[in-house]
Design a protein around this nucleic acid. Structure first.
Lengths: 239, 239
DNA sequence: CTTTGTAATGAACTGGCCTCATTAGACCGC
DNA sequence: GCGGTCTAATGAGGCCAGTTCATTACAAAG
């Protein structure tokens, strides 16, 4: 309760040579070092002093440019993800809803497959955070997700999606499936095939969103009735 | 490298009265305290000393019964989840695949809705862990998930699921959708309706798993069969 | 060459997890 | 009741990672 100064003793730090750099470059170097370390150890196991060492700098310097460890890694994730988005192929020219869906799904799986460390950090550390929505990363991610939403919207406009379905729900099923299919991989329990997983998810989603000319609940009932009718007709004709 | 003893100075701790309890009860009290704190603060913000205080015990005592903080909370999650599983309604008597699906999905959403702290901890802290699969919790969770798998398997046996679909993929889509639909809630950004979400997910999954002859890509198949039937009827009528 | 702004330093601080030498409550046989 | 023994409980302190800040020194401008 007494906030009387702990009277930080005056210090006279001995010095090594200070390698002075323009802020922009120093920031870039720190981010690069942190990113490399994140890739090989994961967030929890990244120690500031190691990042500092790898960046050829001292711990305190990092705090000159970043509020704290978390802030640093948010910046890391943002620049990393931004880089990946840049490589994104444009899907606008591709014809056919199913093929367009496939490509965007494939893209997501491919990122996960090639950048598990980044994925883990974003999915586990950042997304659950109360102010995740305020991060630039959230907006970057939305930009990515909007690719899928675009495809869905256009399909919807063309009447290829059953009117009763909610587009966000379809979107969640797609990304939910992507995540669940890759958890084992992210836990380093084994590999997965981008192509096979892509095909599986695409198939179920595409099938699931089709408009049904009859009421959904009655679909199997309808099938049964149809079968009975066909059988009856066959009998009649056989007479 | 020199592991020469830091020569821990001999101490003579002053004592408060020690409330001696049979291990089982002490463990139960610590777990209860930790669970209450987990519910109100989340894992990261739970400090051992606070748990100790709430359990009416000193920090060191906790380490008598639990290896470390993580171990303690794993036990918390396990007992908590076990308790929830006990309340699970049996779905075996319910007729109809769709309704059975709906109930198991509803159950999962209901747990998330009522125990967000537990959910967050399990999904974020435990599931990503490399040895998640060795935890008792993993098996408990499998028991829960197997409810859905059971429904899917029986539906599959009855020919209600397209042969080309993978059951695990369907399962992942279900739970993936559940999770994605609830992330905002888990970040405390707002509530969600258990019933509406249940219906949405159930509808898409049910529709998505239909064999082609009735649903989905079968719409035109359906039309073709209809045409054949109409033609047959015309023939019959013409007789 | 001096001034001045600021990049960089590194010792010290903080707080949370965890250890362990020590104490003392409770049960037991006499 | 009474010492002996087992073990629950204690709490000071170790440890380590994140963070702060008074100080230093580099480099560009005057």
């Amino acid at each position: 309760m007494t906030s009387l100064q702990p009277a930080r003793a005056p210090r006279a730090p001995r010095r090594g040579p200070a390698n002075r750099l323009p802020p922009e470059r120093r920031i870039a170097e720190i981010i690069a070092a942190a990113r490399a370390l994140l890739a090989e150890r994961g967030y929890e196991n990244c120690v500031i002093s190691d990042i500092a060492e790898r960046a050829g700098v001292v711990e305190g310097t990092i705090y000159r440019y970043f509020e704290n460890k978390r802030d640093l890694f948010i910046k890391v994730a943002e620049s990393w993800f931004e880089e990946l988005l840049g490589q994104q192929e444009d899907v606008a020219h591709v014809a056919g809803t199913q093929e367009r869906l496939r490509r965007t799904i494939r893209r997501a799986l491919s990122i996960i497959r090639h950048e598990p460390a980044l994925t883990r950090f974003v999915l586990m550390e950042l997304r659950p955070d109360p102010d995740y929505k305020n991060l630039r990363l959230y907006r970057l991610n939305r930009a990515f997700v909007s690719g899928v939403m675009q495809v869905l919207k256009e399909a919807h406009a063309k009447g290829e999606i059953d009117g009763a379905l909610s587009l966000p729900l379809l979107r969640d099923m797609i990304f939910g499936a992507i995540e669940h299919q890759t958890w084992a991989f992210l836990r380093e329990e084994g590999d997965f095939s981008v192509d096979e997983t892509t095909d599986g998810i695409t198939a179920v989603v595409f099938r699931g969103m089709q408009p049904v000319s009859v009421g959904a609940a009655g679909a199997d009932d309808m099938a049964a009735r149809m079968e009975r009718m066909e059988a009856a007709i066959a009998r009649i004709e056989a007479r």
